[in-house]
Amino acid sequence: MDTSELKTTIDMAMLELDETQVASLEGAVGQMLEYFALMSGIDVEGVEPTTHALVTANRLRPDSPRTDVDPDSLLENAPDLEDRLVAIPNVL
């Protein structure tokens, strides 16, 4: 992966890295991708991908409301709250 592709990918992953970090990541990513290239050694023509192993189809949930966890306890973990709203900075 060239550096600009790496930077695009870092951006997509919502990360922000300085040049040193990018450089060190570049080495590690390159090593892994090289390793991944081994996969081209096996013929997968006509093979269906496995996205769910052993999972049976058609699990459905009845449409009846239930509260198992107090919503307030979820808000307790929020770094910043305004009344009941989760607040984040947005300087325009």
């Binding site: 449409d63 409301p65 509260t67 198992d68 919503p71 979820l74 009941r84 709203l85």
Partner: peptide, 24 residues
């Protein structure tokens, strides 16, 4: 117009007091 949300048991009423129809 379901009673609950599509992937959890919360009520699908979004006009209520903020962050009351929420779950993990």
């Amino acid at each position: 117009l379901t009673q609950t949300k599509v992937f959890c048991n919360c009520r699908a009423n979004f006009g209520d007091e903020p962050n009351t129809n929420v779950c993990p």
